[in-house]
Computed example of a mutant assay.
Amino acid sequence: MAISLSKGQKVDLTKTNPGLSKVIVGLGWDTNKYDGGNDFDLDASVFCTNGAGKVNSEKDFIFYNNSQNENGSIVHTGDNRTGEGEGDDEAVKVDLSAVPADVEKIAFCITIHDADARGQNFGQVSNAFVRIVNEATNEEVIRFDLGEDFSVETAVTVGELYRHNGEWKFNAIGSGYKDGLAGLCRDYGLNIA
């Protein structure tokens, strides 16, 4: 049975699930009906950071146009432009045993594409979640439902996998950004034009 987390809660992943190495991180959301007439396109992205919380290079920023890290241990499975339907809208496969040693944290984020131009924000998004699934058994291990805490934000760091004493843990973050992807990139040490 999956562990359901609250914002700020941290939980062991590999210690409580011995032998777990390959996981799927599923991200999902729904958009409210009254959205101003523009389509919503939410995107999942991943920042692989060092102990200081910064990426070492652009290759450590994984999204629909850079679908995997250098050694292929973290793979974005593709862009969903509508968010229609049940279940995960976008997913990232992670082979925990193969993640490079210099990656201490793997942060999972959701941004709204062209949010400013379309007048959109996370106040118009509901039922957002992140879940971790054991790839071998398809069993949901951890789930974090973000709730309705956002109003003007256009990007959210939903959670992160991080190393602690040789084991992987998950931290339910749920932290929003008003300045979207640019704010995320700035905080994770990536310069974007």
Rank of each mutant, 00 (worst) to 15 (best):
L5M: 06
H76T: 00
G72W: 02
E140F: 06
N56G: 10
N17A: 13
N121T: 08
G53Y: 12
V125P: 09
D79H: 03
G183F: 15
L5A: 12
N127A: 10
I112V: 04
D145W: 01
F108S: 03
S67Y: 02
N38A: 15
A44Q: 11
G180D: 13
Q9G: 09
N134R: 08
F108P: 02
L190K: 15
I142Q: 04
D79Q: 02
A107T: 04
T111R: 07
R143M: 05
A101M: 00
G159E: 10
G78R: 00
D149Y: 12
K178C: 13
L184A: 05
R163C: 07
V11L: 13
T157N: 12
I132S: 05
L27Q: 15
G53C: 12
R143G: 06
C109N: 07
V133Y: 08
Y177H: 13
K22R: 10
E90Q: 00
F122R: 05
A182Y: 14
I24Q: 09
E70F: 07
A52I: 13
I3Q: 15
G51K: 14
G159S: 11
A91T: 07
A172Q: 11
A155Y: 09
P100H: 03
M1Q: 11
A98P: 01
G8V: 02
N127Y: 14
A172S: 10
F61T: 12
N69I: 04
N171T: 03
